[in-house]
Design a protein around this nucleic acid. Structure first.
Length: 720
DNA sequence: CTAGGGTTAG
């Protein structure tokens, strides 16, 4: 019966639609068309007439058309309440919220659709506060929300963190039975609880929804994925397949991120296959997630293959690629891709910039980094905390803590991470007092410190010889029951060890439940500094029990024996290393000149195209230094050889070659050197004197910290 | 005439 009625209505409106398109011509104004139609139709069909005309107004975005129609309705005595919601809807679609609101306010009796349209409009334009206000007004007007109202208003609650009110409305959805019966309401609820971080609640809602669909389940997977409950995300995806719900591009986009987080390449590849099979391989967001997944699993080649297949990568895609490459130690390539992105006129955002900056700072590429700083300013991210932290990190790792501080002071919002980065910059560069002052400021601001904070302050004390302060802080951290990791202990062992308090350092290790290799090696290197052969041998036995033939340990012992003249033992160590087929990491230095990075290896005098000039300049610098009192320190040579050969080997250290090259190229400003190992005592005293000779600052970042050589002295105070 | 889910970061 009812179906017949509906069918009749549909047939009628089809007929009318035909009529309307014939009657309405673009030459006539909406006004005259309306009059025309009124003449040809009786009042019963007027509602349908309106629909046709309004649709045309929407197509033409003509708010005046809508106003005309309303005027005609009034004139012909047609009650506005009957068609009010259509007028409101048309106004909203023309982007005229003001007029829609005016209409709404003028109505004495409002249909629920009117309320829903307005709420939906506010949600769509992220005007959550107004959406909630409208919802509240609806309740006070005793209008009962329906499935449309509820499925949109929940987003506003999560946006505004209105948990209490959200719960009350959830209760309403339960009472109305909509939580179970309407999957739109269910998904909105799941999404809301997910945004509140309550995946458990979200799952409970999902379980109650009768007919689960792809959106509902995806909303939960997204929740798990974003909260780091990645195993749950993958499980939910699998059970979705079991229940024969087809995943779509949104689903793939989120579950793949979880596979990446888990480094679960097995499932990752499986899902990749599924994605191709179901035809979602060309959806950009899924492709981006796929790219991210391969990068997180360190499968750089696979990720590049995915990237090549992407026709129009957007900002997010590029950012994912650039940050992933940096994470995999492929900084140079990351920066090339960054340039390509800029060339393709894809705008960078703060994520992109902070990743590109991190690429620069890892390689201490000062010039390149400064150019990116220019881009940061150009796009207005100077005060942004993400881009800002990248800049602070860059300047810190290039030895300019002053510039890092300048950036830090312009940030619009200071948080734990930007503070950590700044403290760490000071720490690396040996500005312990400044680091501690910032740390105190952080405490005063009431910010919750984390493990990076702890490491940064301890490192600051360590690098500035503030042993007492360091111990006090460490004790206070222990007292405050702050989670201390092996890294924190290693820092303390290093600090105490360097200060010659070896027994205390060893005591500290016994406190650690699961001491790792690094911890013992740190102690061992302290033994080396203080030439405590017996203790070193005891520690070595301990290490070799955990890790037989550990490379670092054998090298350290070999060097210790060398510096105490026990050459027989040195040979013993070396043969042991040969047996294990271990080779020492070659010592390398890098220097960036005119945005080009030059690499130097210790003892390698010929591979650089300008070796001749470099050696000439080096000889000159050594002579100049000797005139001012430089004498080779042969304790830095760990091989038994003739005295002159020892001198020669010292002269071929990679940092000396790099500095000679930079001086020869006559670079302006400070000379910046990056080293993979730590700077030796001989080079350290040589560079000090050279900095006076050439009247130029030399900044050397070794594997552990910075040395600023200026006018014959070093910022580390000869303590490193 | 009104409704639900995604990808990048220090």
């Amino acid at each position: 019966m009812r179906r017949d009625y509906n069918g009749g209505l549909i047939a009628f409106s089809r007929f009318f639609s035909f009529f309307a398109t014939r009657t309405c011509s673009p030459e006539l104004s909406i006004n005259s068309q309306f009059r025309l139609l009124c003449i040809t139709c009786d009042s019963l069909t007027t509602t349908h007439t309106f629909s046709q005309l309004l649709r045309q107004c929407i197509d033409e975005r003509s708010i005046s058309g809508i106003k005309n129609i309303q005027a005609q309705m009034l004139k012909s005595g047609f009650p506005v309440e009957l068609s009010g919601s259509k007028l409101v809807d048309a106004s909203l679609k023309c982007g005229e919220i003001g007029y829609a609101r005016q209409l709404f306010d003028g109505m004495s009796d409002r249909h629920i659709v009117t309320w829903n349209s307005l709420i939906a409009y506010f949600i769509k334009h992220r005007r959550s506060k107004e959406a909630v206000d409208m919802y509240r007004l609806m309740i006070t007007n005793k209008v009962l929300p329906d499935e449309y109202t509820l499925s949109s208003v929940f987003k506003a609650f999560s946006d505004l963190s209105l948990e209490k009110e959200a719960q009350r409305s959830h209760g309403l959805a339960v009472i109305l039975g909509l939580e179970v019966s309407n999957v739109f309401v269910g998904s909105a609820l799941v999404d809301m609880y997910v945004k509140f971080g309550k995946t458990r609640e979200a799952k409970l809602v999902l379980d109650r929804v009768e007919e689960k669909d792809v959106v509902l389940i995806t909303a939960l997977i997204v929740g798990y994925s974003q909260k780091g409950e990645d195993t749950e995300a993958v499980k939910a995806f699998q059970s979705m397949l079991v229940e024969k719900v087809q995943p779509n591009e949104y689903t793939y986009a989120s579950v793949l991120i979880s596979c990446g987080n888990l480094k679960d390449i097995g499932n990752g590849k499986l899902i990749h296959g599924l994605m191709v099979k179901s035809g979602f391989e060309s959806a950009l967001a899924s492709q981006t997630s796929l790219l991210t997944m391969y990068l997180r699993c360190s499968l750089v080649d696979d990720s590049l293959r995915v990237f090549i297949g992407i026709k129009y990568p957007n900002q997010v895609t590029w950012t994912s690629l650039i940050s992933g490459l940096v994470q995999n130690g492929r900084e140079e390539m990351a920066l090339i891709e960054f340039r390509k992105m800029m060339r393709d006129s894809v705008k960078p955002n703060s994520f992109t910039l902070s990743s590109a900056l991190r690429g620069c700072s890892n390689l201490a590429m000062f010039e390149e980094g400064r150019q990116i700083h220019g881009i940061v300013s150009k796009y207005g991210f100077d005060r942004d905390k993400y881009a800002g932290s990248g800049l602070i990190d860059l300047y810190g790792k290039c030895g300019c803590s002053d510039m890092a501080r300048l950036v830090f002071d312009t940030l619009s919002e200071v948080d734990v991470i930007s503070l950590n980065t700044m403290i760490y910059s000071y720490a690396q560069n040996g500005f312990g007092r400044e680091a501690l002052e910032l740390f105190r400021r952080m405490i005063n601001l009431g910010l919750q410190l984390n493990d990076v904070t702890v490491l940064s302050v301890l490192l600051a004390c360590n690098n500035s010889g503030l042993v007492e302060e360091g111990c006090e802080l460490f004790d206070s951290f222990r007292k405050d029951k702050i989670m201390l990791t092996n890294d924190h202990y290693a820092c303390m062992v290093d600090m105490l060890g360097r200060a010659g308090r070896l027994e205390e350092a060893e005591m500290l290790i016994t406190e650690v439940t699961n001491p790792d290799l690094v911890l013992w090696r740190t102690l061992l290197s302290a033994c080396k500094v203080h030439r405590k052969v017996e203790m070193a041998e005891r520690i070595t036995r301990k290490i070799l029990e955990i890790a037989p033939g550990d490379e670092g340990t054998l090298i350290l012992m070999s060097n210790l024996y060398a510096s105490t003249g026990k050459w027989n033992r040195v040979i013993e160590m070396k043969s042991k290393m040969k047996e294990m087929k271990l080779k020492k990491n070659p010592a390398m230095s890098w220097v960036e000149i005119d945005k080009e990075t030059h690499t130097f290896m210790a003892g390698d005098l010929f591979s650089h195209p300008n070796s001749e000039q470099i050696l000439e300049k080096l000889e000159e610098l050594i002579k100049n230094a000797k005139d001012l009192g430089y004498v080779e320190d042969k304790s830095c040579v760990f091989q038994d050889m003739e005295e002159t050969a020892k001198e020669r080997s010292l002269h071929q250290h990679s940092e000396k070659l790099a500095i000679a090259f930079a001086v020869w190229r006559n670079v302006g400003g400070s000379i910046r050197i990056l080293k993979n190992l730590r700077v030796c005592v001989d080079c350290h005293s040589w560079i000090k004197i050279v900095s006076r000779v050439i009247k130029r600052e030399i900044i050397c970042r070794d594997s552990k910290r910075f040395h600023h050589f200026r006018d014959g002295s070093c910022s580390c105070g000869d303590y490193w």
